[in-house]
Design a protein around this nucleic acid. Sequence first.
RNA 1: GCUGCUGUAGCUCAGAGGUAGAGCACUCCCUUGGUAAGGGAGAGGUCGAGAGUUCAAUUCUCUCCAGCAGCACCA
Length: 648
Amino acid sequence: MAQISLTFPDGNAREFDAGVTPAEVASSISKSLGKKAISATVNGAHFDLQWPINEDASIAIHTLQDDDQALELIRHDLAHVMARAVQAIWPDVKVTIGPVRDYGWFYDFDREEPFTPEDLGVIEAKMKEIINAREPVTTEVWDRARAIKHYEDANEPFKVELIDRIPEGEDLRMYWHGDWQDLCRGPHLQTTGQLPADAFKLTHVAGAYWLGDATRPMLQRIYGVAFKNRKDLKAHMTMLEEAAKRDHRKLGREMDLFHMQEEAPGQIFWHPNGWRIYTTLQDYMRRMQERDGYVEVNTPQVVDRQLWEASGHWDKYQENMFIVEVDEEHAREKAINALKPMNCPCHVQVFNQGLKSYRDLPLRMAEFGSCNRYEPSGALHGIMRVRGFTQDDAHIFCAEQDIEAETKKFIEFLSAIYKDLGFEKFAVKFSDRPETRAGEDDVWDKAESALKSATEAAGYDFDLNPGEGAFYGPKLEFVLTDAIGRDWQCGTLQVDFVLPERLDATYIGADGDKHRPVMLHRAVLGSFERFIGILIESNAGKLPFWIAPRQVVVASIVSDADDFVHEVVNTLRAAGVRAEADTRNEKINYKVREHSLSKVPVILAVGMKEVEDRTVTMRRLGQKQTAVETLEAVAETLAVEATPPDLR
RNA sequence: GCUGCUGUAGCUCAGAGGUAGAGCACUCCCUUGGUAAGGGAGAGGUCGAGAGUUCAAUUCUCUCCAGCAGCACCA
């Protein structure tokens, strides 16, 4: 038999018969490793212990001590064990797919009756039974015909479809957990006995379309989380509880920032505190944009359908637009309008007024543009996904050769702002050409490479979203994360070759001829609404002082101090600090607790001692210790903190 | 939009086929208290909306609306 050489992580190599399995390799090292092994990395690939190795390779044997591999296998095997448990309880449930995801896995089932929350407990119990039976996991490669026949006989149509979708020539691998069988890429554990019976939990059920396609049947997805041990599971559950406390919807209520109500789904009633955040951010953005060479405009909300037809929105976006028809009885003319879902067509109208010269480019046209989109009801989420919102939008009209420089300039602009707002790190996603698109391939080539090299030049890595670009051009997305790890696109930059064409934007070049500008659609915050949601969650409500709507509460300890309290408030207000008095007939403990819960960054306590010394006792949010300072010193310190970072 | 769940006082929630309860918040009174809840009293609800079943519905059924989780969507 042919020999192969396997190299271990310590650099030593040993000869084995070709076709040796990692399980045999592990056992040859020691009996205990043979038992403890869960999988191997062979030439960089994650290998099942049962797969044969046929060529010289590097090999590392994994045990449950290896976090990455162990967690992946635990979660993956639990997906199978869960499917097995479900079919053991309800034999006519059809199985589909069950991948590993963050913290756990899910598995999609086809079943008439919905799973109930009570069912989850029943399934969990069955899973523990299966785990404790400690049955071996085995695998075989089958040929296509046999696998299809098998699943047709078993009445598992989804599996048959899956096999049809696996490219010819790729191995079809079958796995058995005990006598329960599933089509699976692997790898898997040696036995279900390697699973921690006390470190997983089924969390929730939800619908999910088969193959992610809304035209296909909706399946029932059961989610689970799993860890290596009970302690990690518990830590995860605690983390989720903590994250729930940062939910902007909860904090928005507690901090009295905004509310929403049935009569205006997906729209926000901003309260004074919330609107303070909004205007503070808007003022800041306006200063930053002016400094970076933007001009600000403002355009109509209600626009005739003709413009939307010309721009292409009527065709491609109508479902998401609020259409406004004037009651015929009162209409002098029969016009159909739409609330603008985007600002771009209006900006082209501004651009088109008067002749533009190449000397006018790049023209950076900004608008705090109020948009309304009829978002699907299921997509609405607090103030992060709404039907009425305002973008910090701008369109940069430029020549093709300016794309790279403008992109780089924009990324630097965005990252400076994100830094000011406390987001040092953010993800960048790059989406390239989709299947159906407008524009020639060589133009796409140029645009894509310009975006990529500008991103790299600005010093950012990006994830590629192949084929996810807009039909009119490639795009960059700047993604921030909410309290429980959901991603939200905030900033964006999109190259657009199409709209200038459709709306006939032109400029006169140095050669005296008409040319077509390129439009860069870009936003930094994305929308104020979403960004404020993220800002609240990432700070757990403890906003930076300059953004905090209520910055200082001056609280009296005894009512004889009330006069000085008002003097302190007035002094702070004169220094540009948002201060208010709390002279209610309550104990200082009560006041401290209440204002701390509503996230006021600074509480200044004033008793008779302070009145005599003209001092205040300062307590910062989240800190227990206090500091006595003179009124003048506090006003000076807080005035600096209240100043937006760009004005310091 | 789809699947499932939820909707009772400002908030968090309990409750039952016979027209409702708690804690906190709110108002008033007492209390002037030194850094996360001082004491007492009071007020507050068309039980999401509509229809049906029933002697009787907030409770059961249906429809609608909204919210939550996930999926799809996010040009």
